[in-house]
């Protein structure tokens, strides 16, 4: 058995974590995103931050339901989460999903849930700046890396620098995409598109994005969102470039770099 603790377990032991790790549905169930979840949990543990997950008490934040237009389902799941978070008196959270991040940060307050929440790239930057997280950049020295802004971290919440600063610590050869920061191109998953077929069109949005990524000749695309990672991965497969380009979450790059 692993030794990641849930809030319920900690509460039973009369403990309080420094921070709650909000895992999200993708991070919990999607095989690819689970690797990101493990990588980030590993980092938290290595730097000695005590954290807890919510385990089975965590539900979907409701972002895809709300943006699909189903306010009822959103309110149900959101209010359930808020009730649980308030019961544990949760103050500070971190998540590796920009959709969860946005909903908890910007939408839960109107429903009675106010918490301090950071995206994991923000926490990583903070830890690096404080000297608590040391990144051994050797593994990536000189490697061509590009970075894909997720809409909900970038354009929606204005977080452009934190992930870039973390990437800089890898000592890699960082290349910006043509459409980046405020002009970043969506991966195609947001607004609950992840859960439906595309409307008729000329091409898929992730393919459009991948073409731009392939133009940079980068070996690695760094991302910050589990849905972007799925979409970009699918796009690379559609282009049959899975041997040339890898998609990683920023936390995975840190773990690889430090050989943890």
């Amino acid at each position: 058995m692993g030794n990641v603790k849930t809030m319920a377990e900690m509460a039973a032991e009369g403990q309080k974590p420094e921070i709650v790790f909000w895992v999200g549905c993708a991070g919990s169930f999607d095989a690819r995103a689970q690797k990101v979840t493990r990588a980030f949990a590993k980092i938290l543990s290595e730097v000695g931050i005590s954290f807890a997950i919510l385990g089975s008490e965590e539900s979907c934040t409701g972002d895809p339901a709300r943006r699909a237009g189903n306010e009822f389902v959103f309110q149900m799941t959101a209010l359930q989460n808020i009730e649980m978070l308030n019961m544990y008196q949760v103050k500070k959270m971190v998540t590796a999903c920009p959709h969860c991040f946005n909903t908890i940060k910007n939408e839960y307050p109107a429903l009675g849930g106010t918490y301090e929440i950071v995206h994991h790239t923000q926490l990583l930057q903070e830890l690096i700046n404080e000297g608590k997280l040391k990144v051994d950049g050797g593994a990536f020295k000189g490697k061509k890396i590009t970075y894909h802004d997720s809409c909900f971290l970038g354009r929606v919440n204005g977080v452009y620098n934190a992930p870039r600063e973390v990437l800089t610590s890898l000592d890699a050869d960082l290349h910006e995409l043509k459409r980046s920061k405020t002009k970043g191109l969506c991966c195609g998953a947001g607004g609950a598109q992840m859960f439906k077929e595309d409307e008729p069109g000329d091409k898929r949005i992730n393919v459009e994005r991948i073409e731009e990524i392939l133009d940079t000749d980068a070996e690695i695309v760094a991302a910050n969102c589990p849905f972007c990672i799925t979409m970009l991965g699918d796009g690379i497969k559609a282009k049959e470039k899975q041997d040339n380009v890898m998609v990683y979450d920023i936390s995975e790059l840190i773990v690889q770099s430090n050989n943890w």
Binding site: M1, T6, C25, D30, A41, S59
Partner: peptide, 16 residues
Amino acid sequence: SVWQVPDARDAWAKDL
């Protein structure tokens, strides 16, 4: 959860 899955939400942590 957004997907109907039989696993527990913390299955990823079981062997970590």
